[in-house]
């Protein structure tokens, strides 16, 4: 490659353009990155198309009544998933409230000088190890430990506060409460780890500014640090919620797989993912099509939740950080 600025080296400078090889590597990397991105998009599109193709007969057959009705009866070929949609959203929301609150609290505890740095790293590793526990182990733990543990309390709550919708039924075994609790534990590491990063990203000068105004530690955390970290914390919550929506095995073991819509924490329920997992093995051709339709519904819910979460996150970034 000819050097257009050769004359600029007249006084002994050694500047020169990149070599042809360097340009080629540059192009190669760009090509690899682009094609990787493209493959991911293709893969998503292919899965969607395949799901849609399998579900098409059921979509044609049941249409919108699939998401408004509440029976799932393979022998009568009646399929609809409103209770599962409700169960999915309700269990995930409960898990988000519990796991989110604890996750953010842990992040604050680990980043705001409550314990020294080395201890914080150990603590964080332990929390992240929760994410490595297989779902089925959580399910077993729920069945053999959590449900027996919850029973006396649930009974007492139902008997003394039974008029309150959340305690409207008794806990007979599997149900919403143990399922949501286990879900909360499962999303905790996600929420905590990403929130920790959000708090860690806050520049030191922001902390200085807060304490310089004469804030107490809690004022600094609640009025300054939390708003500053809010976009990252929201991302953590969205990811946690997404994980809760799609969680399958532990819920299939704990939620009771019962087609009903109830506000009660102790009533059995069902979720879309759990419905899919429990019904696929023995499903006939028509039921499989209906299950594919249910999978599409779950995908749509997850997609909508993510889009909504992103929108909220963008809004907070604009509002708090002033970025366009």
């Amino acid at each position: 490659m000819s050097n257009l600025f050769q004359a600029a080296n007249a006084s002994g400078g050694v500047s020169g353009p990149p070599s042809a090889g360097e340009y080629a590597t540059d192009r190669l990397f760009r090509g690899i990155a682009l094609s990787s991105a493209f493959v991911i998009i293709l893969l998503v599109a292919y899965i969607l198309w395949e799901l849609g193709r399998e579900a098409a007969p059921a979509v044609g057959e049941y249409g919108l009544s699939f998401i408004t009705g509440s029976t799932w009866n393979a022998s009568k070929a009646q399929f609809s998933v409103l209770p599962e949609i409700w169960g999915t959203l309700y269990s995930s929301l409960l898990a988000l409230v519990l796991g989110g609150a604890f996750g953010i609290a842990i992040a604050i505890f680990l980043t705001q000088d409550f314990i020294n740095h080395r201890l914080a790293t150990v603590f964080r590793t332990i929390v992240e190890m929760l994410a490595a526990i297989p779902s089925v182990v959580f399910g077993l733990w729920g069945i053999y430990v959590l449900i027996p543990l919850l029973k006396p309390g649930a009974e007492w709550l139902h008997q003394s506060l039974g008029w309150f919708p959340l305690f409207g039924t008794d806990l007979a075994g599997p149900g919403m409460a143990p399922a949501a609790l286990v879900l909360a534990i499962m999303i905790l590491p996600t929420v905590a780890a990403i929130s920790v990063d959000a708090f860690r990203r806050i520049p030191y000068k922001v902390k200085e500014a807060a304490y310089g105004m004469g804030t107490t530690r809690w004022e600094a955390i609640l009025k300054v640090m939390l708003p500053t970290a809010s976009s990252g914390v929201l991302a953590a919550l969205v990811l946690g919620f997404g994980r809760a929506l799609g969680e399958t095995m532990a819920l299939a073991m704990l939620i009771g797989n019962s087609n009903q819509i109830s506000l009660s924490l102790f009533s059995p329920a069902n979720t879309l993912a759990s419905l899919l997992a429990s019904n696929f093995p023995e499903a006939g051709r028509v039921e499989v099509q209906a299950l594919m339709y249910a999978a599409l519904v779950l995908l749509a819910i997850t997609f909508l939740v993510n889009v909504a979460g992103l929108a909220v996150q963008q809004y907070t970034i604009r509002k708090f950080e002033g970025k366009p």
């Binding site: 500014a209 004469g214 708090f320």
Partner: peptide, 15 residues
């Protein structure tokens, strides 16, 4: 710090 305020070298407005 509530009686003795401070302005820092780097601008550090809150979010």
């Amino acid at each position: 710090r509530r009686y003795i305020g401070m302005v820092f070298q780097q601008p550090n407005p809150f979010s």
